[in-house]
């Protein structure tokens, strides 16, 4: 190390900053002995050093941390405070299982479709015969052709299983000849009207039992008919035609091979499955 008149200032600065090694310090001091005139300059630099001052921070109390200040809640209590959003059961499918499930679903749909067509063609011949309640009176049977024509579309939804529908229509039929010209009661396709007509039959039979004249019966029946079926009764043709419609939901069933399955249950399952897929989709989008 060579301290000379050109580089002394840098060494002086490092000297006062105490950044020199012991050897370098000694070299600076030796230089000053050799060139005493530079001692003034070193003194001037020393004067630039700030004297440490006793400046006190008054508010230490603000800085201390006391145990009471850090009153931590117990983990158990914290757990009570946490809110958990209800996690829904989520099914993740990879592409392979998706493809497999899709093919299974497609097969299932095809099978159902096939069975549907099959049962439909079978049912067309069976059900009508099974469920039609044919009136005995000759007048009604004369209208048989038109009755069957009307019935045909109605019975497409009825099951192929033969069964009896035991609505008792006889009282009206008995009454029909007597009231023939006027009391043409058309029981329309709704159950509602069917229910309404039941009291009529009761009343009609009671009237019959009291041995009233045919004219009187006709009058009473006419009144009842106009009360219950209003305009329809008077405007309808003479022939009484009955239609029995099976609208009972429970009787709807699907056949897979020989296995009978409730359509409502299937619909419920498919709905749920659809909802699940939708939820999955929306979750992914999120």
């Amino acid at each position: 190390m060579n301290i000379n008149e050109t580089n002394y200032e840098n060494y002086f600065l490092l000297y006062i900053d105490k950044e020199l090694s012991a050897a370098e310090k000694a070299a600076v001091e030796n230089f000053l002995v050799a060139y005493p005139t530079y001692a003034v300059e070193l003194d001037q630099l020393k004067k630039t050093i700030q004297a440490p001052e006793d400046i006190i921070f008054d508010n230490k109390a603000l800085l201390y941390r006391l145990p009471a200040m850090e009153a931590n809640l117990s983990p158990d209590f914290k757990n009570k405070l946490y809110k958990k959003s209800a996690r829904l059961f989520k099914v993740e499918f990879n592409n392979q299982t998706k493809a497999a499930l899709l093919s299974v679903a497609a097969l299932f749909v095809l099978l159902i479709g096939y069975r549907f067509i099959e049962t439909n063609s079978e049912g067309a011949s069976n059900s009508i015969v099974a469920n039609t309640v044919k009136p005995n009176t000759p007048k009604l049977s004369s209208d048989h052709a038109s009755l069957e024509k009307k019935d045909a579309p109605v019975y497409t939804t009825v099951t192929s299983a033969p069964k009896k529908i035991s609505y008792r229509l006889n009282p009206i039929e008995e009454l029909a000849p007597a009231t023939n010209p006027i009391a043409t009661i058309n029981v329309q396709e709704t159950n509602n009207l069917m229910a309404q007509s039941m009291p009529i039959t009761k009343e009609a039979t009671s009237i019959q039992a009291s041995d009233l004249t045919s004219n009187e019966i006709a009058q009473v029946a006419n009144e009842l008919a106009t009360n219950t079926t209003s305009k329809e009764a008077s405007t309808l043709p003479e022939n009484t035609s009955y239609q029995v419609v099976d609208t009972d939901e429970e009787d709807r069933s699907i056949y897979i091979a020989n296995l009978e399955i409730d359509a409502a249950a299937i619909r419920g399952i498919t709905r749920r499955f659809n909802a699940l897929l939708k939820r999955n989709k929306t979750d992914k989008e999120k």
Binding site: K47, Q50, A51, E53
Partner: peptide
């Protein structure tokens, strides 16, 4: 910050301290 109770301990000369 002079009012904050600062006291010189190094520079003997109060005038020099002010200048610095």
């Amino acid at each position: 910050y002079e009012e904050a109770g600062a006291k010189a301990t190094y520079q003997k000369d109060p005038e020099l301290k002010q200048v610095l």
